[in-house]
């Protein structure tokens, strides 16, 4: 028990415990059937939430009021751009991924430009940007059911010994993000700004540059996510990113990152993403209707945040 104590003090442990609990409840219901397949499916789907979740985490860590509401529109547009550039051609996969990355990064940079030039709260800036991006996407991807190149679709669905390769790559990416957050000047600056923006500025942190980089990073991750989603689901569409607004914010909060900023947690993003995906799997396994599933998802998110509670408001 004594060895468990420091582990239990970690804020991210609860999201993993929640995921484990939900998983156990589901296999208890199915009598052990499909336990492994469920983990595989959960890992493949969690990847997409983790990627945008990490971007959103850096943004939220910048402090009260910072949140990226343009992610769903961004994912939608980037998925269309990636599929159009790849044009079903295996040779263009890398170019398509880079195009999606560039689209996302440009959206993130535009978000910060609005925040900086109009001095408006990030919520309004990213909201207005998302209106415009949404229209561009509708107009750009109109009537197109663009399929990914076979090689890219296979890559996005590739598994080794039941473990999705994309999940392994994403684990490596999150390890990198954790190092960037805790051990690099960039990450420490983000944390410093979130704790006290004025103090960070007085201490010589280039506040403007760091915020610009963070919004661009969040945008770029949204872009990559869009391309990967289109590969995984074998096609891009306007609504492909819709669920990632709630999901990206929820995994950050459930994962133990402070909504007041200045305190971030990378492993928790993984735990929370697995928790959310497994929760949906469980509700599907129990055979509940779409209405009940939405209702329970919402109630559980409100319940988790209420239990975690006691933090300063996001705005």
């Amino acid at each position: 028990m004594a060895a468990l104590k420091p582990l239990l003090a970690k804020p991210w442990i609860w999201s993993f415990l929640g995921a484990l609990l939900v998983w156990l409840a589901t296999i208890a219901f199915t009598g052990g059937y499909g336990a492994g397949g469920m983990v595989t499916a959960a890992l493949s789907l969690a990847v997409f939430t983790v990627i945008v979740g990490v971007g959103q985490m850096f943004v939220i860590t910048l402090g009260p009021g910072n949140v990226d509401l343009s992610l769903p529109a961004n994912i939608g547009l980037a998925s269309a751009v990636a599929m159009k550039v790849m044009d079903g051609n295996d040779a263009m996969i890398v170019v398509g991924l880079l195009a999606a990355l560039a689209t996302g990064a440009a959206i993130g940079a535009a978000n910060y430009l609005l925040i900086w030039a109009l001095r408006i709260p990030p919520i309004i800036a990213t909201l207005s940007a998302s209106f415009i991006i949404q229209s561009i996407d509708i107009s750009y991807g109109r009537g197109l059911q663009i399929k990914p190149p076979p090689g890219f679709a296979d890559f996005a669905n590739w598994q080794v010994l039941g473990i999705p390769v994309l999940a392994i790559l994403t684990v490596l990416f999150t390890v990198g993000a954790a190092i960037a957050l805790q051990r690099m000047i960039y990450g420490r600056s983000v944390l410093a700004i979130g704790q006290n923006i004025r103090a960070a500025w007085l201490a010589g942190v280039n506040v403007g540059l760091i915020r610009f980089l963070t919004y661009t990073l969040s945008g770029a991750l949204g872009g990559i996510d869009g391309a990967l989603l289109a590969g995984y689901f074998r096609g891009a569409n306007v609504d492909i990113g819709n669920e990632y607004l709630l999901a990206s914010i929820a995994v950050v909060v459930i994962g133990g990152t402070s909504v007041a900023g200045g305190k971030a947690n990378v492993p928790g993003v993984w735990g929370a993403a697995l928790f959310l995906v497994l929760l949906l799997t469980m509700l599907n396994t129990f055979g509940v209707s779409a209405g009940v599933r939405l209702l329970l998802t919402g109630l559980i998110i409100v319940g988790v945040i209420t239990a975690a509670g006691g933090q300063k408001a996001l705005r």
Partner: peptide, 26 residues
């Protein structure tokens, strides 16, 4: 709830948006 537990309203209402949508479908 938001006042007593000092919760971020964005997250609470984002969760509630699923609750209302679920109820609407029911």
């Amino acid at each position: 709830l938001i006042h007593l537990r000092n919760l971020p309203s964005i997250v609470v209402t984002l969760g509630m948006s699923f609750v209302w949508q679920g109820l609407a479908i029911l």
